[in-house]
Design a protein around this nucleic acid. Structure first.
Lengths: 344, 344
DNA sequence: ATGAAAGCGCTAACAC
DNA sequence: GTGTTAGCGCTTTCAT
């Protein structure tokens, strides 16, 4: 399968040209202290002259680290890859890593074959840690990685009793707040279009909806809840159309994501309902400000930048402390924020 | 930065347990011929017992290969990452690699820092080859990689005189065919909403539009061409709104992408024009059939699956033949197909 | 502050 | 067929 470009200069040749030992060159390229300035410059000169680039395989082998982490999307339905939510997460994680010497590797894991291939890649030491997103309830990947002793941080959790380190938003609280806001605004018939209930995040948001109703003493009606196939706009459109058919008297919709909420807007418009005069709409998640929706959507905002930063921080810490600490895992829940806009 | 899980069994321990030499174990894990079946089974047994996983750094160092390729998106505007086109390409490339032992690594290169980091990663031998997509005209990355002797294949080209191996669709021909179709249908005032002209692909599609007009003896009017900021729906909407303002008599729109065409539909609808009765619309590219547009869009379809397959094939060949062949680069242009639907 | 030397775990060439 | 051995290019002690 191909070989590295022949004639690539090695550290040893650099050492020879600079007239120093290999150890010294190693110290220079790793910015280690304890090298005389003049020596350092001589080595840098030789490196430039030869166009030397360290062989990362050798470095990994000797140094027991890869200087790379993987961000894995475990999603059989690869089309979801294009959803703004994932774009945001990739961006946030990328930003959080810019000031480190760590290379970010994105990986799609769609099938069991790919799952297996990736586990071998990770266990093989090609990455120092793994970030996981969009994990479904029954996905075995997090446990496979944890069992292999690989630092692993998930975005979200698979259940209330998660055994892997994760960062999550306060989904239940956020949903509760959103629905309470609708109730306070005088809305009485509030439908919920939920995400796929095999994902814990969808369960939490639905639970928050129910809690808000209960707190307000409003009876929950099962027919006001529709489960979407996924978190996409099309899914939200379909679910809302169902909801309208069942409950023409509907005066508010709580959507499990902003893309679903956008779909809800379309469905309501198609049914001749005005937003927010006739029906209020609140979604979860949030587009990046730079990607405006039309009309502006009221949302429960997840702090995606902070989620990304936190995931990276936890991962780097686990990478540092491996086998030093006895902490099995850590769970972080971040606060959400209700952002009011034209739709509610 | 963390170290590989300690106590990981090595090939040597497997050999000891199985009572064979290291070479034999190596042959077994690499499925090499020339190992007696009973021996092979004994080794596999030992591997299972120890939970052995090969150290990929060591393999890379000794074997001079990484068994991984990178698919790089060089796009400063990371939001475009979510566009269906890229999703499709990732999918196509992923599929083309499933039957190989090669791990696909996605990488975002947004800034010069990230460009530099990636080049070191690639030159460091962590990947055997690089696939590039969405390369802008002035991007130095392809040359940096080529100069480093790394097998590199681009999707599309930076100019008519490209010095790196690429796979491209017949953009000029496809556009010419589309516009000719519009002309044959009796449309006379045909606007073009082009992609950003710092990308060669946008230039080609615009050239095809002009060639079709010229062939038909229709004078080209500069005011009928609007350049979009990118290939997105919003960009298409804006460009079309401009076009309508300038030329209310417009009876057809040729869009540089299907997402732009979707934006064109919105703009036309907002202006009270009916499609295709009043105005015909044709876009370039194509959504995957599973992602329907509404209404169905007539498009110049690029064979994205074939493009992905071809890119992978060329890359694997270059990886195989490095320093064997004297071919500097290869260029492949794939045929496009006009797919007629409700919009034209 | 710096050179020398011992591996890291594997592949591949060679010997039997 | 299978064992043995010499590196792959680096990091990291350990001397000096």
């Amino acid at each position: 399968m191909g070989r590295q470009r022949p004639g690539t200069p090695t550290l040893e040749e650099v050492a020879a040209l600079a007239g120093v030992g290999r150890g010294t060159v190693s110290r220079v390229i790793n910015n280690a202290a304890g090298v005389r300035d003049s020596t350092r410059r001589a080595v840098q000169q030789a490196i430039a002259e030869l166009g030397y680039v360290p062989n990362l395989a050798a470095r990994s082998l000797a140094g027991h680290r890869a200087d790379a982490v993987a961000l894995v999307m475990t999603e059989p339905d690869w089309r979801l890859f294009g959803e703004p939510f994932f774009t945001e997460v990739v961006h946030a994680v990328g930003d959080a890593l810019t000031d480190t010497p760590v290379q970010l590797l994105l990986t799609l894991v769609r099938t069991d074959t790919e799952r297996q291939r990736f586990v071998e890649y990770a266990r093989g030491g090609r990455v120092d840690g793994v970030l996981l997103m969009s994990v479904h309830a029954e996905d075995p990947l997090p446990d496979m990685l944890a069992k292999a002793g690989l630092p692993t941080v998930m975005l979200g959790r698979r259940s209330g009793d998660e055994s892997v380190t994760y960062v999550d938003a306060d989904n239940t609280g956020g949903a509760r707040g959103a629905v309470t806001h609708l109730l306070n605004g005088g809305r009485t018939t509030i439908g919920a279009i939920s995400g796929p209930l095999d994902m814990y995040v969808a369960q939490c948001r639905l639970r928050g909806y129910r809690e808000a109703l209960e707190l307000a003493g409003v009876a929950a009606r099962p027919s006001l809840v529709v489960e979407g196939d996924d978190f996409t706009e099309e899914s939200g459109r379909r679910a809302t159309a169902d909801l309208i058919a069942r409950h023409p008297e509907l005066d508010a919709v709580f959507a499990a994501s902003d893309t679903m909420a956008a779909g809800a807007l379309n469905a309501l418009r198609a049914a001749g309902r005005r937003v927010p005069q006739d029906v209020a709409v609140i979604g979860f998640d949030d587009f990046h400000p730079a990607r405006p929706t039309d009309p502006p959507l009221t949302t429960v905002r997840q702090p995606l930048e902070e989620i990304g930063r936190t995931m990276v921080r936890l991962l780097l810490e686990e990478m540092e402390q491996i086998e030093e600490s006895s902490v099995a895992w850590r769970h972080v829940i971040l606060r959400t924020e209700l952002v009011l806009r034209d739709s509610a």
